Computed example of a mutant assay.
Amino acid sequence: MFELRRLRLLHELALRGTIAEVAASLSYSPSTVSQQLSLLEREAGVALLEPDGRRVRLTPQGRMLAQHAARALQLDEAARAALAASPGWETVRLSAMPTAAETIVPAALTLLARRAPELRVELAELPPEESLFELWARRFDLVIAEQYPGHSRELRDGIEHDLIGEDPIRVVLPPWEHPLPLHELRERAWVLEPEGTAARRWAVQQCRAAGFEPDVRYEAADLTAHVRLVASGHAVGMLPDLIWNDEPSPLTVADLPGSPVREVFAAVRTASLADESVSLVRTALRDAFAAHRRRAP
């Protein structure tokens, strides 16, 4: 009989690629991970790992067992979710993108404090690209992320996306300027999110559709830096309405062609759908976002 914790190590190795990354993710030492994988090999009776330079890689049998391990972990999570439906609450591990962590999550926690005061929610603020991977790897139970028009997030087996709401995206200019259409900003310096992010790819495409390549002079993951660079007159940018929370924008705001919106969604493993604790958090997030949209200036 396979030990489930060792199967998880194999599953993590298939996801992360190195023993060092598996150890860091699960707070083990690399030697402990190696020892447990050696014991799993003994249980399996076949070689699961083979040398690959200074690292190791999965053998064909190792990859096959890792696929079975993913299903075993999903069944284990479903069983725990069914048990969690009985009286008593589980801890919900939540990861949220920065704009959600700073706006709708506090409001959702306020709702949960009234609806389920004994429910414990733990929050980490991470970019969607990282948090969605970690959800798949079972570090989190629930993730708040976004996707832009025409740029859907990767769909992974065993993960469900649940729309929370739509968040308009607009051009932002220094506060003393008048609104300008996008095509008139071709000569301006821009601040955008870092290369490789969905927000950066989408924003660049909007500029190209308007007939120019943006001069991205500044890049920052923290949208507060965007606001300050625009407010001081050094750049223009594109920002979602959610960043303003319930306050009026301190910047000049102009609509983009077609009035685009990004979709804010909650991602959860399908094995957790029966977990009442996770369902309560999802509902609170939807309610908090809806209340924010009603109050939006």
Rank of each mutant, 00 (worst) to 15 (best):
L192R: 09
P194L: 07
A203L: 06
P168M: 13
P181C: 01
W202I: 04
R188Q: 15
W190V: 03
V191A: 15
L173C: 12
R170D: 12
H183P: 03
V172T: 06
R201K: 08
L182R: 02
G196W: 08
V204K: 12
R200H: 08
H178Y: 11
R170G: 08
R201D: 10
E177G: 01
P181I: 01
H178W: 11
V172H: 01
P174F: 01
L173V: 15
H183V: 12
V204P: 06
L185I: 01
P168L: 13
L180N: 02
V204G: 06
W202G: 04
R188S: 13
R170K: 14
W190N: 07
H183Y: 07
E187N: 12
A198G: 06
R186T: 00
L173I: 15
E184G: 01
R200F: 02
E193T: 15
G196T: 05
R186F: 02
I169E: 15
R201G: 07
P175A: 06
V204F: 10
H183E: 12
L180M: 09
R188Y: 14
E177D: 07
L185R: 03
P175W: 04
V171K: 01
A199F: 04
A189W: 11
P174I: 04
R201Y: 04
W190M: 06
W176Y: 05
H183G: 03
D167W: 03
H178K: 15
E184H: 11
L173Y: 09
P179V: 11
P181T: 00
